[in-house]
């Protein structure tokens, strides 16, 4: 008897909770989402003690929001929900917040939001490159370095991101590709790439990567690549001794420090680029 009474009291309090808010106001909103995990995130973002209570229905995608109209507004709550990754009637989630959701939570987005992802990646819209310096003489001539550079750039990007696991995987691929080439610089580079793949720590990977970049630079220099390649320099690395790397973009993204000093460095030399942007000299 007592237990049921207690239970019913508890339930009662549970039901009362939203109503206990002063100046309580209840509204219903559509919030996008898929599953139970979405429900947790959405409700956590929309509920704030003493201010607002949000409950979301995964089947209907409708949410009931009760809030203290003196303390907050529905707009403020819905903004929080969007920052947590969920599109709603007032706000669309930032692209980054949506991307950070678990796969099962990535609901189908509104067209206004997907319009963004089809945009050009601004990082690629390079400005001020002296493109097509050399008039493009040949058709589809490819240099032997063309085949290996993409993997190298991938490796460089993995170092920028500071992802040791990716670095190992990409370095192993690169090493295999380099081994297949006959030039002595390529063989040398293959050894260094293998060393990157074997290195245990990010620090160690970066030390090996410096050596790899040196050999690959010499290889690239003797076999001009068909797209522009920038030879870049970071004066700080290794206690001021400095180190170099190759990049397919002029903007500096330093693989030796990653986030810490991302834009430290400068372009030392520009290599190749015969085929680069053949379309661009009208």
């Amino acid at each position: 008897m007592k237990i049921t009474l207690l239970l019913s009291m508890l339930l009662h309090i549970g039901n009362m909770a939203p109503a206990q808010l002063p100046n309580a106001k209840t509204e219903t909103f559509r919030i996008a989402g898929n599953c139970g995990m979405c429900k947790q995130t959405i409700e956590a973002a929309g509920t704030r003690k003493g201010e607002s209570v949000l409950s979301w229905n995964a089947d209907t995608h409708f949410a009931e929001l009760t809030y203290d109209s003196a303390a907050t507004t529905a707009d403020v709550v819905l903004k929080r929900v969007a920052y947590a990754g969920y599109d709603n009637e007032h706000y669309l989630a930032p692209a980054e917040a949506y991307a950070a959701l678990k796969n099962c939570c990535q609901y189908e987005r509104a067209p206004q939001a997907t319009a963004l992802t089809t945009n050009n990646d601004p990082a690629r819209v390079e400005h001020g490159i002296p493109h097509a310096d050399h008039p493009s003489p040949t058709t589809g001539h490819h240099s032997p370095v063309d085949g290996v550079l993409p993997s190298y750039f991938k490796l460089k990007d993995a170092l920028v991101a500071g992802n040791a696991k990716n670095v190992s995987a990409v370095a192993a691929d690169l090493s295999k590709q380099l081994e297949g080439l006959s030039a002595p610089e390529a063989k040398e580079a293959a050894t260094h790439a293998a060393a990157v793949a074997k290195a245990k720590t990010l620090e160690d990977q970066r030390i090996r990567f410096a050596a790899l970049s040196e050999s690959l630079y010499r290889f690239t220099k003797t076999n001009s690549p068909s797209s522009l390649v920038y030879y870049q320099h970071c004066p700080m690395y290794n206690k001021g001794k400095g180190a170099n790397w190759l990049s397919n973009e002029k903007a500096i993204r330093n693989p030796y420090y990653g986030d810490q000093m991302l834009t430290c460095g400068n372009v030392v030399e520009t290599l190749g680029g015969k085929d680069a942007e053949t379309h661009s000299h009208e």
Binding site: E96, P122, A161, P235, I252, D259, M261, T263
Partner: peptide, 24 residues
């Protein structure tokens, strides 16, 4: 540290901004 820093190119405040996808 001999870095010849100039023209906002190395944003030392970047160390304070935990941003993964390095915006331009």
């Amino acid at each position: 540290m001999g870095m010849n820093m100039s023209l906002q190119q190395m944003d030392m405040n970047v160390v304070m901004y935990p941003e993964g996808n390095s915006p331009k």
